[in-house]
Design a protein around this nucleic acid. Structure first.
Lengths: 191, 191
DNA sequence: AGCGACATGTAATACGTTACATGATTGG
DNA sequence: CCAATCATGTAACGTATTACATGTCGCT
C-alpha cells in the first residue's frame, strides 16, 4: 500500500500525469521513494477506482494526449489518515555491494576496488544533484513557506545519505588498497 | 537472484541451518541484507537443487532436528563469479517516514514528532548494537585476520548509516518543533 | 496453563522488475 | 536514418510479506 501513499503525497503538492510522476521519482523525490512507470500506471488505476484521484484528459497536438491526475478530497483524507495512523518501519536494506565486500577475500582486491569506485561515483553524482537542488530551491530554509520547510527535510536526508556512502566508499577503498599492497595475489596463486 | 548470493556469502563464512540464517539477518548481517525465514527456506531449496549447497541432517534430542547447510565448491564458484561479473546497483530507498514528512503540513506537527522520536529510538538502538559488535569483534581492526577485515567494512557502513539517521531525526525534530511553536494548531482550527 | 525459543515448512497475496507494444515529433 | 522524448499501457515473471500450520522443551 505504500506506493499508493507516495503517489498521493506527490499529488498533494501538484497534479501530475503518470509520466510526470515517473520523472519525479528520478529527481528529488528519489531521495525517499522509487517507482517505475509500470508500477505507477497500475497504482493510479487502482487509486482512480477508489476515488482517491481523478484524471483530467489533456488533449495535445504534436505529442500524445495525457491524463492529468488530481487528488480528490477522499484521496487527501486517505493520505492524512495514513500519516496519522500507520506505524512506518525503516525500510529494509538489501545492498549487494556490501555482500560482495563482506566476502571480499574470495576475489582479487582489484576487482572490488573497481566496484567501489563505480559506486563512489554514483553516490557522488547524486550528492551533487541534491546539493544543487538545495541551493536552487531551499536557499535560506528558515524563510521558506511552510510546505517547503517540510519538503526540505527529506532532501536533507538524501544529502546526508549520499554523503555517508561517499565517505564509506573512501574508507573501504583505502582499506582494500592496503590489503592489496600487503599481499599481491590473494586468489589463483597457490590454491 | 540477490538473496541467493547473500545466503551463499553467509555460508562461505560458516555452515548454517535455515533457522540460523534467519537469525543472522537480524544481527550484524542486517546492516546489509534482510530476509525472513520463509524466503530463506524457499531459496535454500532452490540452491540445493542447483548443487550450490548441501544439507547435513542433524538429529537432536529435546529440540527439533535440523538441516545444516554447507557451501559446495559449485556454490563457492557461483558466488565468486557473481562478485566478479555482476554490476550491483545501489538499493532503491522506499522510506515511508520521509513520505510523511514530505507532506507533513497536512497533519498536526505533534503527530509527526511522535513518529520521528520513535524512529530516532529505533536507529539509536541499532547504532548501539553495531557499536557493541565493533567493540567486541573488531577491536584493533588493523591486526585482524584478512577475512574479518573485509567483514568489518559492512558493519562500518551500518554504523554510519544508523548514525546518519539519528542525526537527521534530531534535525527534523528541531525543525518541526520550531514550526509547532510558531503556529500552534495547523489543522482542525480554522480550515 | 501459557509463552518464547527451537525448527521447518505451505499457501496466498502483494509488490517490483523486465520485456513487449504502439506511435508521433524533434534533433543529430 | 537512428535515437531520444513524450505518453500510455499489457503480460509475464520474480521477489517479498503475511498468515497459517505443526510440535517439543523449558520457564514462569
Amino acid at each position: 500500500m505504500a506506493l499508493a501513499h507516495a503517489l498521493l503525497a506527490l499529488l498533494a503538492t501538484d497534479s501530475f500525469s503518470g509520466y510526470d510522476l515517473a520523472r519525479e521519482f528520478e529527481g528529488t523525490v528519489g531521495s525517499f521513494w522509487k517507482a517505475t512507470h509500470q508500477q505507477i500506471y497500475r497504482e493510479l488505476a487502482q487509486l482512480e477506482q477508489k476515488g482517491a484521484v481523478q484524471p483530467e484528459a489533456i488533449l495535445q497536438e504534436g505529442r500524445p494526449n495525457k491524463k492529468l491526475y488530481h487528488l480528490t478530497p477522499t484521496g487527501r483524507q486517505l493520505l492524512a489518515d495514513w500519516i496519522a495512523t500507520s506505524d512506518s518501519e525503516p525500510c529494509p536494506v538489501r545492498e549487494a555491494l556490501l555482500v560482495k565486500v563482506f566476502v571480499g577475500h574470495l576475489v582479487p582486491p582489484a576487482l572490488l576496488l573497481v566496484e567501489l569506485r563505480r559506486h563512489r561515483q554514483l553516490h557522488q553524482q547524486r550528492l551533487e544533484y541534491y546539493r544543487e537542488m538545495e541551493r536552487s530551491h531551499f536557499a535560506d530554509p528558515a524563510h521558506l513557506p511552510l510546505e517547503d520547510r517540510y519538503a526540505y527535510l527529506p532532501l536533507r536526508r538524501g544529502l546526508t545519505y549520499e554523503q555517508g556512502w561517499v565517505e564509506w566508499c573512501d574508507e573501504a577503498i583505502a582499506c582494500i588498497e592496503t590489503i592489496d599492497q600487503e599481499r599481491p595475489a590473494p586468489t589463483g596463486s597457490s590454491d
